[in-house]
Amino acid sequence: MRLLVPVDRLVGRLTRGRVVALGLVPSLVVTTTGRRSGLPRSNPLLYVPDGDAYVVIGSNWGQTHQPAWALNLLADPAAEVDVRGRRLPVRAELATGPERDRLWQLLVTEWPAYRAYVERAGGREIRIFRLVPTGRG
């Protein structure tokens, strides 16, 4: 993980978002606003489509703490995604209840390792977001 994430970010930057996650899974780069710094923060993430939205998960590779990008989205749900070389403004929606359950099934179908991440997370609820294009910009 310590090597994969920096390499993935570099590949994403060099290809302007056209290739992330080393091309193994559908992926995007989400740019949030840092909740403390106010600066843009970009992270490559696996996603699954859900209508026009992109579903992402704050698994943080099963670590016991939330990923910073997920905390940033909670503080400010306005973000941008780079998907297949297109930059789109989005609004993050935190999934809860039956909607979260439905999206979880989509995610583990794409990446079954998420089940193991839940076990490693030590009881932390892994957040799931729908990134909905806003149509602005």
Rank of each mutant, 00 (worst) to 15 (best):
N60C: 09
W61R: 14
E80G: 01
L107A: 14
E125S: 14
I126N: 12
A121Q: 07
L24Y: 13
G122L: 06
S37I: 02
L131D: 05
G23H: 06
L39M: 15
G51F: 07
V30Q: 02
T31H: 09
S27T: 04
V56A: 09
A53Y: 08
V11T: 00
I128W: 05
L45Y: 08
Y47S: 08
D50C: 11
G34H: 00
G12I: 01
R86Q: 05
R127F: 14
V56P: 05
R9T: 14
G97H: 03
L71P: 00
L94H: 05
V83N: 05
W61M: 13
T15V: 06
V25M: 09
V29S: 08
G58W: 04
T134H: 15
V55S: 04
Y117N: 07
T33V: 11
L73G: 03
N43E: 13
V30L: 00
L131V: 07
G137T: 12
T109V: 13
A53I: 09
L14Q: 08
R35N: 05
G62Q: 08
W104S: 01
I57T: 13
G62P: 08
V108R: 06
R36D: 12
V132P: 06
M1P: 06
H65Q: 12
E99C: 09
P77V: 03
R18F: 07
P67H: 09
R91K: 09
S27L: 01
N60L: 12
P44S: 11
A53N: 08
G12F: 01
T32W: 00
G135A: 08
A95P: 00
E80Q: 07
L106F: 11
P89E: 08
Q105I: 09
G38P: 04
L88A: 11
A121C: 07
E125N: 14
V19W: 01
D101P: 00
F129V: 10
V20D: 00
T32I: 03
V55A: 07
T109D: 12
S42K: 15
V108W: 03
L74S: 02
R127C: 15
R87V: 04
L73P: 03
L24M: 15
G38R: 08
